[in-house]
Write a protein that binds this DNA or RNA. Structure first.
Lengths: 197, 197
DNA sequence: CCACACAAACCGACCAGACGGTACGGAGGT
DNA sequence: ACCTCCGTACCGTCTGGTCGGTTTGTGTGG
């Protein structure tokens, strides 16, 4: 197996503590105590506290990217229309973000705590993701389905604002299910960007 | 006068450093050095580092609340329709958020660094603001202008996600002016929430 | 089945330094 | 004489990270 029990436990504890207390206010001592391991064990697998934080980003970015490409590929194979694909992508990223809510909390809140190089990498990978998203928008605009009087950059920001904001208001114990939220936000977004015929 | 030069300089420096480096990674030493005062002077006016952070929240919350009420009152006096008032409110909060972009950065990023009581107060005042916003939405729904198939809580989240996300992507040196952004986001939002007749 | 070797896994006491905050005294106005 | 304002030196605490050493696992030769 690729990951040991120690790594798993530490990352799990780190995610939990970072998302509830914040990165800076969580000490390595707390993390290893919560994980049930010692500092020596932890520093055997991770070079720094920063590694723990970055692991959270890496996992989420990889996951979202993979899902995006999977959906786009499946849509292309099926010959789906742009709006259909875009809807699937939107609903999926929202659902996934709800599934990984603690990660989302850390993601928005602690980006500036990463080392500068890693901040750059996170930015780069987010940009890549956005560009793939933008390609869908452009296709839709070209086909006359989506409005062309608002820059795509703003449409992207408009959608991902919802995605990032999820961790600040959504509660699994609340009235709405993840699926409902995904559907409704996507609907609001699509309604906003459709061309007026 | 109410505020001394020391207070002003310190708060200005704190805002600048908190927004660029983050609260936890900014030391009191750095702040007083940037403000050109000594620690003794600072601690004469502020009880703790936390006070500096809360001052940023307090100012922004007060400002936004005041502007909201002003606009709603003006709209009521003029006898404006709900959509007209809501549009004015939305455009104003976006413009204001752009005007106070560093405050917005700190706002979203450092809420969990406040003392628990102050976190509660921030939450309470935000909720008050949202409730006033919600009243507009409800009025619009009642009048059949806005859709009633999506919970108002979600419509609120959908709009304020854009507001909070501004500090993460908007650049004053970018292509879009504050006014354009305010107009376009508001347009996207309103288009999304209008009832389909 | 054992003895041995060697590396990976792990322990926990221990730094060096930075941090927020304080104590105390002086300066200057009233 | 007194109070506000502020400078300086200092304190106790906590932090991320290290390091020498021990334990555990595993492959190997007899």
């Amino acid at each position: 197996m690729r990951t040991t029990n120690v790594q798993d436990q530490v990352l799990r504890a780190a995610l939990d503590l970072f998302s509830t207390q914040g990165y800076a206010t969580t000490s390595v001592q707390e993390i290893v105590a919560a994980a049930g391991v010692t500092k020596g064990a932890m520093y055997h697998y991770f070079a720094s506290k920063d590694d723990l934080l970055f692991a959270i980003y890496d996992r989420l970015l990889s996951l979202q990217k993979a899902r995006l490409e999977e959906i786009v590929a499946a849509g292309a194979e099926r010959g789906d229309g742009v709006e259909e694909v875009l809807r699937a992508v939107c609903e999926d990223v929202i659902s996934t973000s709800i599934e990984f809510l603690p990660e989302g909390t850390v993601f928005t809140r602690s980006q500036h705590m990463l080392t500068p190089e890693r901040q750059k990498e996170v930015k780069r990978r987010r940009r890549e993701y956005h560009e793939e998203f933008e390609a869908l928008l452009r296709r839709g605009i070209q086909e006359g389905l989506f409005r062309d009087d608002v820059p795509t950059a703003m449409l992207i920001a408009h959608f991902f604002s919802d995605v990032h904001y999820l961790s600040q208001w959504y509660s699994p114990t609340g009235p709405a299910t993840a699926g409902q939220v995904a559907e409704q936000i996507t609907e609001l977004f699509l309604r906003g960007i459709r061309a007026t015929t």
